[in-house]
């Protein structure tokens, strides 16, 4: 290999490193969680729902929500400032169609210090529910809900300033299923 090719190769490697480094940093700074790895479950699911609403679409919806209708005012307040809503729902006819590894593929992305699991939540629905919040300094950067029961798997990823109260107002809208999340009251000590 001559000197010129070697320099070109080094430059190309550097460019690739910079590109992938920047991509990883961008992902780390946002609350966007990769969910495409779950798409393979679609082949086994009796029903699959996949919703992708980016910031532009959210702001478009917010712009045209009524400022007079009390319900729409609430939703408008919640969605203003959001940067994305991504939902995947898989319903199965029988149990055991998804694995612990499928859940782990989501959980593993939520182990950085920016993410914290809210422990005192429950759902009126059957099965387990996990809610994770991402915080950047003092601001909430996003939220992930992982709801699983033997025949259903739901992943909701909302980017932007959203908390549990706001999430409950969004249930049933913009493709977010009714999760019926409640905050558990702390047990009183005797």
């Amino acid at each position: 290999m001559n000197g010129r090719s070697e320099v070109s190769l080094k430059l190309a490697s550097l460019a690739l490193l910079l590109f992938f480094g920047a991509a990883a940093t961008a992902r780390a700074q946002t609350a966007r969680v990769a969910m495409d790895q779950l798409d393979k479950l679609g082949a086994k699911a009796s029903q699959t729902v996949d919703v992708n609403i980016d910031e532009r679409m959210i702001q478009l919806a917010a712009k045209f929500l009524s400022s007079k209708d009390p319900d729409e005012v609430k939703v408008k307040e919640v969605v203003t400032g959001l940067k994305g809503i991504y939902v995947k729902v898989f319903e199965f006819e029988s149990e055991g169609e998804y694995t612990v590894a499928d859940l782990a593929s989501i959980r593993s992305q939520l182990t950085t210090p920016a993410w914290s699991r809210i422990v005192n939540v429950k759902s009126k629905k059957e099965g387990g529910i996990e809610v994770y919040l991402m915080t950047n300094a003092t601001q909430i950067g996003g939220l992930v809900v992982l709801a699983s029961d033997p025949k259903e798997l739901v992943v909701v990823n909302i980017l932007g300033p959203v908390d549990l109260e706001k999430l409950s107002q969004l249930e049933g809208q913009f493709g977010i299923p009714e999760l019926e999340i409640e905050v558990r009251k702390p047990k009183q000590k005797n």
Binding site: K44, S46, Q47, T48, V49, G175
Partner: peptide
């Protein structure tokens, strides 16, 4: 933009 996709394999 793939806004929504609903599939029922059955």
């Amino acid at each position: 933009l793939p806004f929504i996709q609903v599939l029922s394999a059955v």
